[in-house]
């Protein structure tokens, strides 16, 4: 593929890849993206820019991606199926590619019930698997979903997808991953791993099915600053598996600074564990609301400097 993204080059070279999340603001201030970009610049192979995550209105992921590019970063732009039909999505895919975006992560999207406009009508004209197939069709077959040709300048995108090893039905999660690969996913980013044992069991199934040879899998990791975040996720977020042991560790950690340090340590231990699992090609760091910690964790994990590719 021409114009390969840095993320693709790193992964195809067999290097352990690192991406990190960069959440756009709930306003029109480009400086927020510029500031957050500094935490990622030179430290990651892709800055993953969320698309109105948890259905809360934020700056467009494509616009934020373009600002990140202007800062020298390479974004992984997220696109969800909740808010746009196939016409708008294809239009935005062309626009994103024209702005220099090289990685696109395809998701269904959080239901609007969880956001700040629960009254809205959702779209879901296509689902995430169909979105993956659509981007692949535009890139590889140079056709729109309708079959109409893209005569020149087709969007060259490295296609990402997500999978949640902690959702149910557990056995079906591997089948669904296979579907996403068949549809055209080049790399996979997982839901936040807290339950390393369950993640390991899922990875075993993935490896057994040979899927790790067809797709690059990045383990999603979220450093936390307190037990509160863990308790909240355990109680409120469906499809999350949070071991009680982690909550106890954070509770036992003393004051605010000590808790932060414990959160970092837990994250570092997880990086070490997933790094040694067969089939894991990298990590995706999701420091929700704590982006400044990205370089600290990566430095201490020995993942800096990033390789030359």
């Amino acid at each position: 593929m021409k114009q390969r993204s840095r993320l693709e080059k790193v992964l195809s070279a067999g290097k352990f890849a690192v991406t990190a999340e960069l959440g756009p603001p709930q306003n029109a201030d480009p400086d927020v993206i510029k500031k957050k970009s500094q935490y990622c610049l030179g430290n990651v192979d892709g800055a993953n820019i969320t698309d109105n995550q948890t259905a809360i209105v934020r700056m467009s992921s494509i616009a934020a991606g373009a600002i990140a590019i202007s800062c020298g970063l390479e974004p992984v732009v997220q696109m969800v199926c909740r808010d746009r039909n196939r016409i708008a999505m294809q239009s935005d895919i062309l626009g994103a590619a024209a702005l220099g975006v090289k990685n696109l992560l395809c998701l269904s999207g959080d239901h609007q019930k969880f956001g700040n406009h629960p009254q809205s009508n959702n779209v879901f004209d296509i689902d995430s698997v169909q979105l993956i197939a659509m981007v692949k069709k535009m890139r590889d077959e140079k056709q729109f979903l309708s079959g109409d040709p893209i005569k020149e300048h087709e969007p060259r995108l490295f296609i990402g997808a997500v999978e949640n090893p902690f959702a149910d039905p557990f056995e079906f999660r591997v089948i669904r991953l296979a579907k996403k690969i068949e549809a055209g996913a080049d790399f996979i980013q997982t839901q936040c791993v807290f339950d390393v044992d369950k993640f390991a069991r899922w990875m075993e199934l993935v490896v057994k099915a040979g899927l790790h040879e067809k797709v690059y899998i990045l383990a999603g990791l979220t450093p936390v600053r307190s037990e509160r975040a863990l308790k909240y996720m355990k109680a409120e977020v469906a499809g999350m598996s949070i071991p009680d042991e982690l909550i106890s560790r954070m509770e036992a950690a003393g004051d605010k600074e000590e808790k932060k340090e414990e959160g970092i340590k837990i994250c570092l231990e997880m990086i070490e564990k997933v790094k040694n699992m067969e089939g894991v090609a990298g990590i995706h760091l999701m420091p929700i609301g704590w982006e400044s910690i990205t370089p600290v964790i990566l430095e201490r994990a020995g993942l800096l400097p990033r390789p030359e590719v």
């Binding site: 269904s108 959080d110 959702n122 995430s128 149910d168 039905p169 469906a238």
Partner: peptide, 13 residues
């Protein structure tokens, strides 16, 4: 709730 044809999504628990 998402009319998925290739479900389930990650929120099935």
């Amino acid at each position: 709730a998402k009319k998925l044809l290739n479900g389930p999504c990650g929120g099935s628990s």
